[in-house]
Design a protein around this nucleic acid. Structure first.
Lengths: 210, 210
DNA sequence: ACCTGAACACCGTTCAAGT
DNA sequence: ACCTGAACACCGTTCAAGT
């Protein structure tokens, strides 16, 4: 699986790929340098040849989690739909791995990873004639809201998964993998941001036209 | 300063007050149980009589940081102004202590502390006839955006403070304590959220009136 | 170029026992 | 009610040395 081709040793990608698998399997608190090294059949100190410290290794894992964001197709969609689409996709990316939102949240705050929303959103806003500064503000708002919301959501999911036997456990079969319908508020919030961007654009063009 | 009255020992409040002081002085990575205990002239294990674990101690510190949010005066201000006022105040609370945003961010995600925006915002929205569900979504959006933005901002400030001697250090005197003008984007984002809430309210009342 | 082996300087948490 | 003393089971990082 994560072993390199025979003859060569490990690569940076081997390390981050293995770390992502361990994250999903055991969670962020158990994602130690020792656990990663053991899984690669290597000494801990070997990891420091590939990465200068743990934080930059975690940044590489974050980039892997956010990878699918680049493939979102934004063509022939109005800006407000693009806001909703990118926000929804970002949430899906974060939920795809255990503790994904927490990990990405800190990598983003440390500035070790690029905005997962900005470049794609600006592709649409430039086409629609939205001023760049407004698009940047909207991109930041979407990013911070989605990451914060999903961080909170994912933490609640993990907590529920642990205390599942104490409370009412009889839901529909495989109710765990199916996203619960707290997603309605999430969609409403994205619409609010999209509408707010729209209002800002109208305000801007009105000022330019007087 | 943080010592209790003679005769009595320490209280929960002594501990969290001392922890907040150490946070501001040395930063979150150095806020260890051992450092807190040493500052209180006590053994580490003594802290576990007051708090079940470190995370709940940090939650008490977070609550202390968010304390001033309850004193925001919301009377005779329209809802959209209240959104901007609460968002701005929250940012100020987080910036008031070193690493405040990071600490509060995790306490909020863990659900160990109440929303610093919700109750105050709803005081205004109920008075203005805004439906509760919309107000809740707006409160979440403001909270997550402000915390995420300020987390990022504060991290950049700390990084700059360390690398200050390498780069151009000659700015205006005491340029550190004065908030730099990245706050313009912040205000624009809050206005976008306020406008988005406004649009949602109009959409709602239009549907009710047909 | 990539890794080993061993050490350093720490962590959070527990628990019997004291007063 | 509040704390001591000592231990347990870990951490991330460094560095000389190997191949």
């Amino acid at each position: 699986m994560s072993a390199p081709a025979s003859g060569r040793r490990h690569s940076r990608d081997d390390v981050s790929r293995t770390a992502l698998r361990l994250l999903d399997e055991y969670g962020l608190p158990d994602l130690t340098m020792r656990a990663i090294a053991t899984s690669l059949d290597v000494q801990v100190s070997a990891l420091y040849w590939h990465f200068p410290n743990k934080q930059s290794l975690l940044a590489a894992v974050s980039a892997r989690i956010l990878g699918p964001m680049d493939q979102v197709d934004v063509e022939d969609l109005p800006t407000s739909d693009v806001v909703r689409l990118l926000g929804g996709r970002l949430r899906e990316c974060l939920l795809a791995y255990r503790d994904g939102a927490e990990l990405v949240s800190s990598s983003l705050a440390l500035g070790l990873v690029d905005s997962p929303v900005q470049s794609q959103l600006m592709r649409a806003t430039r086409r629609d004639g939205v001023p760049d500064p407004l698009a940047l503000v909207a991109a930041e708002t979407v990013m911070h809201y989605v990451v914060g919301f999903t961080f909170h959501e994912q933490q609640r999911l993990s907590a529920d998964a642990l205390g599942l036997l104490d409370t009412e456990t009889s839901l529909s079969p495989d109710a765990v993998s199916a996203p619960p319908e707290a997603g309605a508020d999430f969609a409403e919030a994205l619409t609010m941001i999209a509408d707010g961007l729209d209002a800002a654009v109208r305000r801007h063009t009105a000022r330019a036209g007087r």
